[in-house]
Amino acid sequence: MSMLTIAMPKGRIFEEAAALMQEAGYQLPPELDESRKLIIEVPEENMRFFLAKPMDVATYVEHGVADVGIAGKDVLLEEDRDVYELLDLKISPCYLAVAGLPNTSLNEVAPKIATKYPNVASTYFRGKGEQVEIIKLNGSIELAPLIGLSDRIVDIVSTGQTLRENGLVEYETIVGITSRLIVNPVSYRMKNKEISTLVSRLTETIEEKAVQ
């Protein structure tokens, strides 16, 4: 059996992803998220884990330095990487939405949209037949309409609390998001056995959780 290298997302998704792996019976080291070590080997499972920025997970997998990764559908939509999307892990549910200040409409000459997801936003508005100008931001997207940078934002919403606290309202829902198991196309073939085992164990766990 050859070793599987798995890219895990830091932050919000990490805990749920790690919990799911543990429920599926994988012995993850408890120090995985506290440790300053970037790469952690788990010889008992013949696996190697590393933590990456959620936005980068698909990049590591596409280039084949990770065989498998856990990434949000938002990342997959935005990055459009050449990877297999094998499983919906049904964790970290949220959705991408268009939001803005209440009772406002888009600027008619140059509607401006601030977002961390320029590709998703651009595809969405083109699909609606609207030409908009996308402004890429890296965080605190809610600030943009408040300070007058943009008419709307496109961002991840999980509870809606951040929007409410900032006096913003949702205008449209774009698409629902959950985390996915992604696999490099070559690893999918060359390490087929290891990956099939991982997929069937995770599938079982996900189905059990769905019944509960």
């Binding site: 596409e62 280039h63 084949g64 330095v65 050449d82 196309p185 070559v186 060359m190």
Partner: peptide, 9 residues
Amino acid sequence: VYAEGVGAP
């Protein structure tokens, strides 16, 4: 065609 150690066909 896939070869070990290369991330793309």
